[in-house]
């Protein structure tokens, strides 16, 4: 369903800040795949997601989704294929707008926005049901500004927004990294629920290797803008954190000791 072929990306080419972020990425995702992505800082994980969603253009290579070439489509036009949750809980929602208005914005992703009412009565009822499932008491705060909510609540709403139209691909960029451990666990289990309920193809970046092993059916490891390890099925289930650390040490010639990966 997602087909990435020979994608390269260099930031600030020709300057002292030149950074080869992606170094020839080939990746094919099958329908229903739940892929976890790990790798150190600067490995290109976020850049990979940003290339897929069109935040920056690629230098070369192609990106297809369900056979449709989206390589040169502007970000807002390809948004209809994706649901996205970002690391920063502030990024996924509009703080000055109400909970129902935020959800309604996501419900119209990929559709014409007309002069009809921004949130219909029927939608409000549907949103209430959706929010009830979160079990955060938000179903009674439909008209509260999202900016008044906690980071975990905002991330939970962003997750709802990202999955509400059953996107072709769900992209999660360390979406629990900014939350406290308890909230992170809750948001993560909600993520797992929503993904399996909708059988949504997912690409999830995480720094937590245990989560990367426990969740999903496939795991890829990135280093220096390349995918250096791709494992799925039974092999993935039998992985241990120590295996991943060893692999990573091999790839990075021992650099990993300084890396944030160790902390996860």
């Amino acid at each position: 369903m997602l087909e990435i072929k020979g994608v390269y990306k260099t930031f600030n080419p020709g300057t002292i800040n030149e950074k080869k972020a992606l170094n020839g990425i080939d990746l094919t995702l099958n329908d229903g795949d739940f892929v976890t992505v790990i790798g150190g800082n600067g490995a290109g994980k976020s850049t990979l997601l940003n290339m897929v969603t069109g935040v920056y253009p690629v230098d070369c290579g192609s990106i297809k989704i369900d056979g449709i070439d989206i390589t040169n489509l502007p970000e807002y036009k390809r948004a209809k294929y994706f649901g996205r949750v970002f690391q920063d809980p502030m990024t996924g929602t509009a703080a000055d707008m109400q909970i129902d208005e935020n959800l309604a914005l996501a419900a119209r992703r990929g559709k014409m926005r007309t002069l009809r009412n921004g949130v219909s009565k029927k939608e409000r009822e549907e949103f209430k049901e959706l929010l009830k499932k979160l079990d955060l008491g938000l179903e009674n705060r439909l008209t509260s500004k999202v900016g008044l909510l906690s980071g975990g609540q905002r991330q939970a709403i962003t997750l709802l927004m990202a999955t509400m139209q059953n996107p072709k691909l769900l992209l999660l960029d360390e979406h629990t990294a900014a939350l406290d451990p308890q909230t992170a666990a809750k948001v993560l289990s909600l993520t797992d629920e929503l993904i399996s309920a909708g059988n949504i193809t997912t690409l999830m970046i995480t720094h937590n290797m245990k989560d990367a092993i426990r969740l999903g059916n496939r795991l890829i490891m990135m280093y220096d803008g390349k995918i250096i390890y791709d494992i799925s099925g039974e092999d993935k289930k039998n992985l241990h954190v120590s295996d991943l650390l060893e692999l990573f040490a091999k790839a990075s010639n021992g650099e990993f000791a300084n890396d944030r990966m160790m902390l996860a």
């Binding site: 209809k80 970002f86 996924g92 707008m97 927004m161």
Partner: peptide, 16 residues
């Protein structure tokens, strides 16, 4: 309004 409030969010939700 979403564009004025949060451009990244607006674009992620398909808003030009």
């Amino acid at each position: 309004r979403a564009t004025g409030c949060n451009q990244a969010m607006a674009r992620a939700n398909g808003i030009n």
